[in-house]
């Protein structure tokens, strides 16, 4: 067996790999946040009455789910500058291209998650909000979204993890994320196991940290469980609300 631990440890905390992991994480967070921002209003419209806008959104979702992510990345990076000269300039970096492509791609999936989460909230909640005279934006902000978030969180976290791994596709447009760095080192030294292990370690660290974060956020939803609501109420009471 040939596994050189010193190569592994050295690479694990080396700047190129750290930078690659940070780029991977940064790109994922940026793209997913953008996707959620795009998806939220679209989901609210989809949750409403039928309209022309709703048909357009359905078409948008269908389109971006149908096109392979790799094709979208290549299109944004290679074809967009051909069509619009403005993208030929210096500021249009691989990171920006990947951010745009992955945001649009992810937003289509996130629309569906948010829409189903909103429709999972009991219909009586909207009626109750209307009946006490709240305007629509307040009903969504204070009644619908906090409850929909509980439903949306687990599939959203799934999406985040999928997206984290999809960023490796950006190696094809020469973004120096974790997998690109790994490939470069492997190609240079042929020490496959050491460098693959480094990449694996960083992906595991990132995903497990996020799962921990998810657990923390889910503690806020203890109101939905008969057994745990009492503990939450007690905690809040002892803190004086």
């Amino acid at each position: 067996m040939s596994f050189d631990p010193s190569t592994f440890w050295e690479a694990l905390f080396s700047w190129p790999f750290l930078r690659g992991a940070l780029l991977t994480l940064g790109l994922t967070i940026a793209a997913h946040l953008t996707a959620i921002l795009i998806a939220l209003p679209l989901a609210v419209v989809l949750n409403g009455p039928p309209s022309v806008l709703r048909k357009l959104i359905t078409a948008y979702v269908g389109f971006f789910r149908a096109v392979p992510t790799l094709l979208q990345l290549l299109f944004v990076w290679n074809a967009l500058p051909q069509i619009f000269p403005i993208f030929r300039e210096e500021w249009f970096t691989p990171f920006l291209a990947a951010w745009i492509a992955l945001s649009l791609n992810e937003s289509a999936y996130q629309v569906e998650i948010n829409r189903s989460a909103l429709s999972a909230v009991d219909g009586g909640q909207m009626a109750a909000g209307q009946a006490i005279g709240l305007k629509k934006s307040h009903i969504y902000r204070y009644i619908m979204l906090p409850q929909a978030l509980r439903v949306a969180l687990p599939p959203t976290m799934n999406e985040f993890i999928t997206l984290l791994k999809l960023t490796s596709l950006a190696s094809i447009i020469s973004l120096q994320e974790l997998m690109t760095v790994t490939q470069i080192n492997v190609a240079r030294t042929f020490q496959f196991s050491e460098y693959y292990a480094v990449a694996l370690t960083w992906y595991l660290v990132m995903v497990y940290s996020l799962m921990g974060l998810q657990k923390l956020v889910e503690r806020r939803f203890r109101w939905s469980s008969r057994t745990e609501a009492a503990a939450l109420a007690e905690t809040r009471r002892s803190r004086g609300w």
Binding site: D122, G124, Q125, A127, A128, Q130, A131, I132, G133, L134, Y142, I143, P146, Q147, R150, F221, W223, S224, A233, R236
Partner: peptide, 27 residues
């Protein structure tokens, strides 16, 4: 109109993520 008329529903429709007091002071 809606603030002039209070409504009570068959299924209560309390906001489950808010405490009793928060339900009352939200609006």
């Amino acid at each position: 109109v809606r603030r002039t008329a209070g409504m009570v529903f068959q299924n209560f429709n309390l906001f489950p993520h808010l405490t009793v007091l928060e339900n009352c002071i939200l609006a």
